[in-house]
Design a protein around this nucleic acid. Structure first.
Length: 110
DNA sequence: GAATTGACGTTCT
DNA sequence: AAGAACGCCAATT
């Protein structure tokens, strides 16, 4: 640590929200950011979740507002993120998540 | 220590 | 309606 312990930072809450995403559901960076109080910047959400990689956070359930797997290349290999989501019953068109509106979930939903 | 980048989204032009 | 610029906080170089 020695530098800005995330134990009280903004992106720690992103972990919590990501872990709250139910199976077969996905959420957007903006939704999380907005849930935190004021859309501080969806960029930070992605950044925080990026740190969540390697933790117990299902980062593959977090996509951009259009359901596009913009962060798939952050995962190991390349299609890992898509594979994980497909494993949950999601459909894809390349990197575009289909039925996005149906599987969309917000922190306030539960 | 300062400048740049980063898994986006909103707003202005 | 489409495109460009801005904003936000933290981390990396």
């Amino acid at each position: 640590m020695t530098k800005t312990d995330p134990s009280d930072s903004f992106f720690v809450r992103c972990y919590a929200v990501s872990q709250r995403i139910p199976y077969g559901k996905v959420t957007s960076y903006g939704a999380i950011a907005k849930y935190l109080g004021a859309a501080r910047s969806a960029r930070m959400v992605g950044w925080a979740i990026n740190k969540s990689l390697g933790k117990n956070v299902p980062a593959h359930r977090v996509v951009n507002k259009i359901g596009l797997l913009t962060g798939k290349h952050h995962f190991d290999g390349s299609n890992l993120m898509k594979q994980l989501l497909e494993n949950e019953g999601h459909k894809f068109n390349g990197d575009q998540l289909l039925n996005f509106n149906e599987v969309f979930w917000t922190p306030t939903d539960t």
